[in-house]
Computed example of a mutant assay.
Amino acid sequence: MPQTHRQPAIFRFAPSPNGRLHLGHALSAFLNHDMARAAEGTFLIRIEDIDRTRCTPELERGILEDLAWLGLSSDRPIRRQSDHLEDYQAALQRLAELGVTYPSFMTRGDVRNHVMAAQAEGLAWPRDPDGAPLYPAIDRLRDAAEREARLKRGDRHAIRLDVGKAIAMAGPDLDWLETGEGVPRRVAANPAAWGDIVLSRSDAPGSYALSVVVDDAAQGVTDVVRGQDLYHATAIQRLLQVLLGLPEPVYHHHRLVLDEEGRKLSKSSNSTALAELRTQGLTPSDIRRLVSL
């Protein structure tokens, strides 16, 4: 359970409306709600809809219907990322002023071809904790005049974090307090494992890593309770919190609900979708039992 707080505990469940909720989401939502009530704290629902190409109002309505059916409602008005784009732009501007960002012009195809060429020469290309290849250093090392010329020309680009500069500025002793493993302990953070992550692109004014730390700070979140699949992502979020001068929440990463083949559940799987289970006649108590609560 989370540490004792001097301030009231605030928990949040923050789904993205790019699909319907499944049993894994139910576990996380229940845990956040139950832990908030045990701490006599606040339970928040946040809609992470910054990706406007995949997130839709219809899917958001479906998520809220699922949560209402589970008996879960937010203790405060729901925060939607799409209403706070200026907050992410302000954070991005702050990072730019610190000198830890740069424009990147390589497409996914460019990166794939670059990595394949390197591997063809026998080089082992580094990958992040999710298995994706790290972004090449080409844009980070690009000549300033060429960079400016491409920006003036209007070349499509994203904004990335220069993780090396960022770590040097934040200091090497990054860590977080983890309570999801039984005994609370400090966990050493390794943001370098993620390479130069995207902070902003044309279709998403703030990446997940950037927007989540801004949102948590804005809402006063004290306890981040989420799935084990986001455990390693905490490292880069702690780096951004330090750079931006944001408070550090307590982290609690819980077990995942897996399918019959031992894989993490997907929003595309109807067999575990809450809406489908509801039509089959299951009750919220049945859902608690299915996620072993």
Results as ranks from 00 to 15, higher is better:
2 P>K: 09
2 P>R: 12
4 T>M: 03
4 T>Q: 14
5 H>L: 15
8 P>I: 02
10 I>P: 01
11 F>P: 00
13 F>D: 02
17 P>A: 14
17 P>R: 12
19 G>L: 01
19 G>H: 06
19 G>I: 03
20 R>A: 13
21 L>A: 13
23 L>R: 10
24 G>Y: 01
25 H>V: 04
25 H>Q: 07
27 L>Y: 08
28 S>F: 00
29 A>T: 09
36 A>S: 14
42 T>E: 14
46 R>N: 11
48 E>L: 06
50 I>D: 02
52 R>E: 12
54 R>P: 04
56 T>D: 02
60 E>A: 05
63 I>P: 01
66 D>F: 12
67 L>R: 03
68 A>L: 04
68 A>K: 12
69 W>H: 09
70 L>M: 13
70 L>P: 00
70 L>F: 11
72 L>E: 08
73 S>T: 15
76 R>H: 14
79 R>I: 10
79 R>D: 12
80 R>H: 14
82 S>T: 15
84 H>R: 15
85 L>V: 15
89 Q>H: 15
93 Q>A: 15
95 L>S: 07
95 L>R: 05
98 L>N: 11
100 V>H: 06
102 Y>A: 04
103 P>Q: 09
103 P>H: 09
103 P>S: 07
116 M>N: 13
118 A>K: 14
120 A>K: 13
126 P>G: 05
127 R>E: 04
131 G>M: 05
133 P>I: 14
136 P>F: 05
140 R>E: 06
140 R>M: 09
141 L>V: 10
142 R>F: 02
143 D>L: 08
151 L>A: 12
151 L>D: 08
153 R>P: 02
154 G>K: 13
155 D>P: 07
157 H>A: 10
158 A>Q: 09
160 R>M: 06
163 V>A: 05
163 V>Y: 02
164 G>N: 11
166 A>H: 08
170 A>P: 06
170 A>I: 10
171 G>K: 10
171 G>L: 09
172 P>M: 03
172 P>N: 15
172 P>A: 14
173 D>H: 12
176 W>P: 01
178 E>A: 00
178 E>K: 01
179 T>Y: 00
179 T>C: 14
181 E>Y: 00
186 R>M: 10
188 A>P: 00
188 A>H: 09
189 A>V: 04
189 A>I: 07
192 A>L: 13
194 W>S: 03
194 W>G: 01
195 G>K: 15
197 I>D: 06
208 Y>E: 07
209 A>D: 11
212 V>H: 04
213 V>I: 12
214 V>M: 04
221 V>W: 01
222 T>C: 08
225 V>N: 02
228 Q>T: 10
229 D>V: 08
230 L>F: 11
231 Y>M: 14
231 Y>P: 00
234 T>S: 11
235 A>F: 09
236 I>M: 12
236 I>D: 02
245 G>P: 01
249 P>C: 04
249 P>D: 05
250 V>G: 10
254 H>S: 13
256 L>G: 13
257 V>Y: 04
259 D>Y: 04
261 E>W: 07
264 K>I: 02
264 K>M: 01
265 L>A: 05
266 S>W: 01
267 K>P: 07
269 S>Y: 00
271 S>W: 00
273 A>K: 12
274 L>P: 00
279 T>P: 00
285 S>A: 15
286 D>M: 09
288 R>A: 13
288 R>I: 08
292 S>A: 15
293 L>C: 04
